[in-house]
Computed example of a mutant assay.
Amino acid sequence: MWLLLDENLSKQLKQDFTEHEIFTVRDKGWNGIKNGELLKLMLADGFHALLTFNKNLQHQQNFEKYTLTVFVLNAEINQYKVLTKLSDKVKASLAAGDMLIGPIVIRQD
């Protein structure tokens, strides 16, 4: 599965998803690209899902138009030591194969 880490996430999260093809926005040279355009680029490049810390993305985009899964990591702070605790939930969703179109909010317990 092809995954993209949004620029608001630590690149360290790549190490949590070694069983997938995972790239950062920076890896792709897509820094500074707005969300709608980023989703278009992802579709064109064959990505399956975006991981982001942007809680507003789910309300700003029309996911009938962008047929991607977006994992919204919902935590108190945007630091690897906190976000890595959410990785198992994302991996469980990926392993289940029931990739929903649109946002899936992943919260801390």
Rank of each mutant, 00 (worst) to 15 (best):
F53E: 02
L5A: 05
F71I: 05
R107C: 08
E76G: 14
V105L: 11
R26V: 11
D109G: 09
L13P: 01
Q60A: 14
N62E: 15
M42Y: 06
H20R: 09
G46M: 10
V72P: 00
L3A: 05
L86S: 05
H48D: 15
S87N: 06
V72D: 01
K14P: 04
G97I: 04
V25W: 00
K81R: 15
A75G: 04
E7F: 07
Q15P: 00
Q61F: 14
Q58F: 09
K89F: 08
N54F: 03
L5G: 02
L100S: 14
S87T: 14
G32D: 07
D98C: 07
A49E: 04
M99C: 09
F17S: 08
K81E: 13
K91A: 09
V70G: 00
L43P: 03
Q15C: 06
W2F: 14
N56W: 06
Q15L: 08
A96Y: 01
N35E: 10
I101K: 12
I106H: 00
G97H: 06
K89H: 09
S93C: 11
H20F: 15
M42L: 09
L41D: 01
K55I: 13
T67L: 15
N56D: 15
F63Q: 13
V90A: 10
D6S: 06
E7S: 11
D88E: 13
T67E: 15
S10C: 10
F71P: 00
F53R: 07
D16F: 01
K55W: 03
L38C: 05
D45G: 02
K40W: 09
D45I: 01
G102P: 05
N74H: 14
L39I: 09
T52S: 14
Q79G: 05
V72M: 04
K91P: 00
R26L: 11
L9H: 02
I77R: 13
V90M: 04
K55V: 14
F47D: 00
L100I: 14
N8W: 04
L41H: 09
F71L: 06
S87C: 13
I106W: 00
G29S: 07
F53P: 00
L4E: 04
A95V: 07
M99P: 01
Q61P: 08
D88R: 09
T24A: 01
R107S: 12
D88T: 11
K28C: 14
Q60S: 15
A92D: 14
G102N: 07
F63K: 12
K55E: 14
